[in-house]
Design a protein around this nucleic acid. Sequence first.
DNA 1: TTCGCTGACGAACACCGTTCTATGCTCCGA
DNA 2: TCGGAGCATAGAACGGTGTTCGTCAGCGAA
Lengths: 268, 268
Amino acid sequence: MATQEDSGRRPRARAAAIASGDAPDGSLPVPAWRKQRKGSAAGPAKQPLSQDLIVETAIRILDAEGLDGLSMRRVAQELETGPASLYAHVSNKDELLDIMFDRICGEIALPEPDPARWREQVKQVSYEIHRVMSAHADIARVALGDIPTGLNSLRVNEWLLTAVLGAGIPPHAAVWGVERLYLYINADAYEGSLHLTRRRASGLTEQEYMDRFVGQVREFFQSLPTERFPSTVKLLGPMMSTESIDGEDRFEFGLEMILRGLESYQER
Amino acid sequence: MATQEDSGRRPRARAAAIASGDAPDGSLPVPAWRKQRKGSAAGPAKQPLSQDLIVETAIRILDAEGLDGLSMRRVAQELETGPASLYAHVSNKDELLDIMFDRICGEIALPEPDPARWREQVKQVSYEIHRVMSAHADIARVALGDIPTGLNSLRVNEWLLTAVLGAGIPPHAAVWGVERLYLYINADAYEGSLHLTRRRASGLTEQEYMDRFVGQVREFFQSLPTERFPSTVKLLGPMMSTESIDGEDRFEFGLEMILRGLESYQER
DNA sequence: TTCGCTGACGAACACCGTTCTATGCTCCGA
DNA sequence: TCGGAGCATAGAACGGTGTTCGTCAGCGAA
């Protein structure tokens, strides 16, 4: 398990907990408002409710049924309780989503920064973020709809900032570049997850889905009048190639584009 | 129970409507499934229901109350009818959103393509798309969550493809580059609209909102432990500057980055 | 005139997030 | 050991959501 940090309740509370943290070593202090539970050692008997348990359950549902399938009632049902019970540990569905997102950010593995290999490493980490987000259905939507302030999210951000600064990109370009990169990664992960969601909903295999869905889209584009959409029709080939739809290479292309743009701001 | 698996019927129908479009001049053909109404000249007497009327009403609500405030019931209420009545003209809320999005795409003004000024023009059009999306609350979310296949959306896409092709970007890079650019514009427009939504919900002026919201975020970041987040703390200045939050310049930065990346694929 | 069709729409279904409120249970001080 | 305070639990309910069912009225064709 990577260095996973606990996420807090509200941004302010979080920061305060860190600032006044009384843990001398590297581990973050356990926030006062989260009493540690007795044995989280997974008794087969009914576990007492806790924020951790709720978040874990919610992520399990997210993975299995997607963000749209995740509801407070669904989580409560899974825990064999009523929806109202959750609100003692989580003030909000939005807060639950934030905490889930940050917990998931904790899965992102970060290498030791090496300024000499910054470009390669930034790319690697971008892939890693993308991989983790894609592994959890459409969770990336949360990042698009909210400025993440969780500790694990900050950890990733800090890593990227350090790498980019170390490459000699001036401060302003570094801040914006990393922010834009993050936006791009999440937007693509979200977009990509939609196909997966749809495919899962349809119950088709990847190949079947590809054939049917892409086939329909292709059919649609091919029926466009050439005189009105000449470039679109001319580019039907590259547009409809499997690699275009699949996403991996397309993501790489955009990433490369952003990196080329970013390094044009390098000062040394 | 019908398992409505023929979700491809819609795009196909549209394309067929286009292919058999009988508008000889420059204006787009009116799709067969959108019957034109008599006078949309806003009679004070109760207008008969129609898809156009529904879409117009929905966009008005969207502008005034945001995407979250838009519901079938809300639209029906505005039209002084029941929600069920809408389903005779629109098969779905998703379809309504698609149509709304495409209608809004129709507001995007496109200049005559001039290959010599392709870079400037692509930038200009990107701004234009961004402007139109931002003018309609969080409608950009629709584009992120669905592959737009409306005519007006295609029109914009066609323009961008033509411009980029004309600049000597090879086919594959053109397709992907335009697609990535589109993704970026919509993602940023959506992100930006969230602030506006939140501000509107809070009822504060722009200045007040700036002060309060940014103040809180700044407070949070400033309370971060320097030893754990050195780069983040070091970059607090550029991160928290007004221009960073406001978005206009930030959008421009990312756009410039993408364009620099894109033109690195130029072949002549 | 009558038949058939189609648009309008009230009612209802199955959900949703959230809050109120009553009920227990646990733990602490006396 | 008892009393009581405080809190996790959860049933019920509120006000919303998208969508469907079935009825009804109006109208064009026969």
